[in-house]
């Protein structure tokens, strides 16, 4: 049983540190469809192994994500509303996905397109329950420590690597709440990996303040969770990959 806790944080004479606590992180989001398919309960071992062996040279898709943060707020979304192929000759639309957090007020606003609609989830923050582990690794020039949690709705194991030297609670996708900025997120041992490729500490108040107008259906977090739970259950029952139509 845990309780509402207040924690007093004392910084004394940490000059300029407050200024460092804002910036923008560029992440590479890569998704391995083959690994995801191999978790689908309705596929037989034969089918899964065939998928793996046939498509082993074509496993993933990549996109670029941006996280703007300061000590109180964060904003995470696609780098652009449209993705351009590597050779620049194809452009396609990205789903609406804007994750906004206000740590000071304890609120979140999430614009998420899924199941053919755009939803706007406005609710209070619910912090993931993290476990802290001992591994260290270097990501984009920052030494990061490992933490783990899980997503009970999607039954996912979440591994986050947070920077020891950027004491901000922000992070990519739906995750945050660690003693340092999350620079890498790994969902289910590599099904999805979101890795920081660049961390720039600079003033981002303009980007954080900018509000893009996206129409959508306003719902509460509990409704959103229920939508997901129902969809996953239905899709698995219908023997369809639920993650074709929701974010993994």
């Amino acid at each position: 049983m845990k309780k509402l806790l207040f924690f007093l944080l004392i910084f004394a004479g940490i000059q300029a540190r407050a200024q460092e606590l804002r910036g923008v992180v560029t992440y590479e989001y890569s998704q391995d469809w083959i690994k995801i398919a191999s978790r689908l309960p309705y596929l037989s071992l034969d089918q899964k192994e065939r998928i793996k062996s046939t498509y082993k040279n074509y496993t993933g898709s990549k996109s670029i994500m941006k996280l703007y943060f300061n000590a109180d707020q964060s904003l995470y979304s696609y780098e652009s509303d449209y993705t351009r192929s590597e050779d620049g000759r194809w452009s396609w639309r990205n789903s609406d996905y804007v994750i906004r957090r206000d740590f000071k007020q304890g609120t979140r606003t999430e614009i998420i397109e899924m199941l053919g609609k755009t939803f706007i989830v406005e609710d209070s923050l619910a912090e993931p329950k993290w476990k802290i582990l001992n591994q260290l690794k270097d990501i984009a020039g920052h030494v990061c420590m490992k933490a783990e949690t899980d997503d009970p709705i999607k039954s996912q194991k979440i591994t986050a690597w947070f920077a020891q030297d950027i004491p901000v609670s922000a992070g990519p996708e739906m995750y945050y709440g660690l003693p340092g900025l999350i620079l890498e997120l790994d969902i289910n041992d590599g099904d999805v990996v979101v890795t920081a490729t660049q961390v720039e500490l600079k003033d981002v108040s303009k980007e954080l303040a900018a509000v893009k107008k996206i129409k959508g259906k306003k719902i509460k977090a509990a409704e959103y969770d229920k939508l997901l739970t129902d969809h996953i259950k239905t899709a698995i029952k219908a023997q369809e990959n639920p993650y074709w139509t929701i974010r993994y």
Binding site: L4, F6, L9, I10, A12, G13, A18, L125, E127, K129
Partner: peptide
């Protein structure tokens, strides 16, 4: 901004048994 003290509100988990 130089803060001597900064207060950080941390909601670890909201449960009842405050008593």
């Amino acid at each position: 901004m130089k803060n001597l003290f900064s207060l950080l509100l941390l909601v670890v988990c909201c449960c009842t048994a405050f008593a």
